[in-house]
Amino acid sequence: MGKTAISLFLALQTILLHELPIAIFSLEMTKKQLEYRLWSLMSQFDCYRHLNLVPIRGERIRQHRAGLSPLTQEEMATIVSIVKIAAELPLYINDNRGITVASIASECRQVLAREGKLGLVVVDYLQMMAADTSGNRSYELGDVARGLYKLAGDLNVPILALSQVSRAVEGRNNKRPMMSDLSQSGILEMVADNIIFAYRDEYYNPDSPTQGVLELILAKARHGDTGTVEVLFDKSSGMVCSLAEYSYRYQ
């Protein structure tokens, strides 16, 4: 559905709009893979248009590295410009796949000490942190979820913890995820302040009339209303924008 891409977009927005450092702990993708996605995303942002960038689709960098389709001079110049900017962003990425809640806490405190502030912590994703050492995966996941919830309170920093949903959605006509679809849902539903599901109809229906539309379903809001918002999602770059803004620009 694009949960990693969405979280990277939110992280970059937090940096650009609020000038706050971000810490990303990725147990699924390597730092280099996330950097490639970041470069592609940044090439689409309006705030960098004065640099005369050309849009870089995510697969272009992979094709170049594989020797299948070399980058053009314009694409290479764009990446050079973006890398210079990205190197200055207060973005900390840790791709240690064996990281624990205690290690996350330690690194977050180091960022706070260095930067004086921290805007968001992203953990991608919860199930990868739940080692099945005790033979009870639900118990292990519960420990991780509770640990991250406590850490968010201790640091006074929001933690965006990504999660898988179960395959139960595959057997329903309406495949929009529900609370019960969260993997080992009980503990996650209990500790999370907010739960947002991502749904793209084209993922299940290639001929869907809502191509490029991402539904963000706020299924739980501890301090507000629930509901659904539709945004435009470019899966090739991870860019997210409002449908109203897109219609105004391109109609």
Results as ranks from 00 to 15, higher is better:
A131V: 11
I61T: 09
A102C: 09
P90Q: 03
P90H: 03
G67W: 11
K84E: 15
E140V: 04
R137E: 10
Q44N: 07
H50F: 03
L91D: 02
E107P: 10
A130G: 12
N94Q: 15
W39P: 01
W39C: 05
Q127V: 06
V83R: 15
E107F: 04
E59K: 14
K117V: 13
A131Y: 04
M128F: 10
T78Y: 05
A145I: 02
G67N: 15
R65S: 12
A86S: 09
R37K: 06
S134F: 09
R114C: 05
L38E: 02
N156F: 03
Q110H: 12
R65Q: 14
A145F: 03
L41M: 05
I82C: 10
R62H: 11
P70K: 13
C108F: 04
L51P: 08
L112Q: 05
V83A: 10
R49N: 14
R57Y: 04
L155S: 01
P70L: 11
T133N: 11
I61R: 09
S43E: 09
F45R: 09
A113H: 08
E75P: 10
C108K: 00
P70A: 10
G67A: 13
L126A: 08
D154V: 06
G119C: 07
R65Y: 01
P55L: 06
V80L: 12
P70I: 10
G116Y: 11
L151H: 00
L38H: 05
W39M: 14
E88M: 13
R57P: 05
G147M: 03
H50T: 09
D124L: 04
H50I: 07
M42W: 07
F45A: 06
L126K: 00
V111W: 02
V121T: 13
V111Y: 00
L151K: 01
A86V: 15
V54N: 12
G67R: 02
Q127R: 12
D95K: 05
H64R: 08
S138A: 14
R137K: 04
V80W: 07
L118I: 10
C108P: 03
D95C: 03
L38K: 03
C108Q: 13
D154W: 01
D132P: 14
S43H: 04
N136G: 03
A152Q: 07
A105E: 05
K117N: 10
G98W: 08
I82D: 08
L118N: 09
S103K: 13
M128I: 06
M128P: 00
D143P: 13
C108S: 09
I82T: 14
Y48R: 04
A86T: 14
L112I: 11
L41Q: 03
S40H: 08
I159Q: 01
Q73A: 15
N156L: 04
L141S: 07
A131T: 14
C47M: 10
P70T: 07
M42R: 06
C47Y: 15
G135Y: 00
Y48P: 01
L151Y: 02
I82P: 02
E140S: 14
S103H: 14
P90Y: 07
T72L: 13
I93L: 15
R60P: 06
E107I: 06
M129H: 01
T100E: 04
I85M: 11
L68G: 02
V83I: 01
S81Y: 06
H64F: 07
R114T: 13
